[in-house]
Every structure is written in C-alpha cells, then in structure tokens.
Amino acid sequence: MNYTPMTVRGAEKLREELDYLKTVQRPQIIEAIADAREHGDLKENAEYHAAREQQGFCEGRIQEIEAKLSNAHVIDVTKVTNNGRVIFGSTVTLLKLDSEEEVVYRIVGDDESDIKHNLISVNSPIARALVGKEVDDVAIVKTPAGDVEYEIVDIAYI
C-alpha cells in the first residue's frame, strides 16, 4: 500500500473538514432536496437539480477525504530527534544566495502545501533539493529561469 506523508496539523484539518461536511453540509443539502421536492415537478425544478448536484460534490469530497486519511502516514516532527538534517515536517530557514533574501519554509504533504503560508509540498522541486541536507549546505533548485542556490541557515523540528 502507498502511504501519503501528512503532518499532524494536516490530518487535523482534513478531519475538521470531514466533520463539517458530515454534520453541517450534508444535512443542509438533504433539507434543500426535501424543500425542492415540495415544489412539484422534478423535471423542471432547478432548485432540486442544483441541490442534487451539490450533494454529489459533497459526497465525493467526503469519499476523497476518507481515502486520504486511510492512506495517511501522520508524522509528528516534534517527536523526532533532530539529527540536523532536513526531513518531512521540518521548518527550514534558507538564504537565497543571489539576493541575500532569507526565507522560511515548512515541508508538508501535498494536500497541506500553501506557498502563501510558506508551506511547501515534499514533492516540490525546492523540498526535494533540501531533504537530507544539513545547516550550511547549499541546495541547488532547478527552475525554468535557471538554477537557484539556497544556503541552509537553520533546521527546526517544530
């Protein structure tokens, strides 16, 4: 079986969404379908068809989240001994060598990645270049605009 790495926070967010879909959204959709049915002829009932479509999306998302959680390998990086290497879940402070700009990234699972919050996917080119490296190592990231070099300033397991 193929397990998907996920942080504790990523798994919590998926469980929260699943709970919301099952306890709030699903009952609202069922109620909307029941209300639309009362309006008569279902063939030309736009509210009924819209509610059924919404139900399909909701049920599909529920199945998708359940599948992701069942295949998740939840990794709590705070319980891992910091061996000084970049690993899944670690927070890495980098110095972009061409601009002397400092950036901080946390390496997370695909579903959790959000560049606006400096959460990068473990499968992204930058994360792949960083994993296994240590402080003071230089990681070379291949981009369409050319190679970008980052020096690893700090690695935290937080």
Results as ranks from 00 to 15, higher is better:
102 E>C: 00
95 L>F: 02
18 L>W: 04
82 N>S: 12
57 F>T: 12
91 T>M: 09
101 E>A: 15
136 D>E: 14
100 E>K: 15
7 T>A: 03
143 T>N: 03
35 D>N: 12
15 R>I: 02
8 V>A: 00
56 G>L: 07
135 V>I: 15
101 E>M: 08
66 E>A: 05
158 I>R: 11
45 N>P: 10
96 K>N: 13
99 S>D: 06
127 A>Y: 03
94 L>N: 06
123 N>P: 00
52 R>F: 09
86 V>Y: 07
58 C>E: 06
67 A>N: 14
7 T>L: 01
61 R>Y: 01
73 H>M: 15
30 I>F: 06
104 V>K: 12
109 G>F: 00
79 K>R: 15
103 V>H: 04
99 S>L: 09
65 I>Y: 04
35 D>K: 13
13 K>E: 12
82 N>C: 05
40 G>V: 06
146 G>T: 06
134 E>C: 15
109 G>Q: 01
109 G>P: 00
34 A>W: 07
82 N>W: 04
152 I>S: 00
132 G>K: 07
61 R>E: 10
116 K>C: 03
87 I>D: 11
119 L>F: 02
47 E>D: 15
19 D>V: 02
133 K>H: 09
80 V>M: 10
35 D>W: 01
123 N>K: 06
52 R>V: 14
64 E>S: 13
45 N>G: 09
140 I>M: 06
150 Y>H: 13
42 L>R: 14
105 Y>A: 04
29 I>F: 03
118 N>E: 11
134 E>D: 02
44 E>S: 13
61 R>L: 04
18 L>H: 07
112 E>L: 00
136 D>S: 09
59 E>N: 11
74 V>P: 02
59 E>V: 08
52 R>D: 04
15 R>E: 15
94 L>F: 04
151 E>S: 03
35 D>I: 14
36 A>H: 04
76 D>C: 09
122 V>P: 00
85 R>N: 04
66 E>R: 08
75 I>Y: 03
149 E>I: 01
106 R>C: 02
34 A>N: 12
113 S>L: 10
44 E>Y: 13
76 D>F: 11
50 A>L: 11
144 P>C: 10
90 S>C: 14
156 A>K: 15
142 K>C: 01
144 P>H: 10
91 T>C: 03
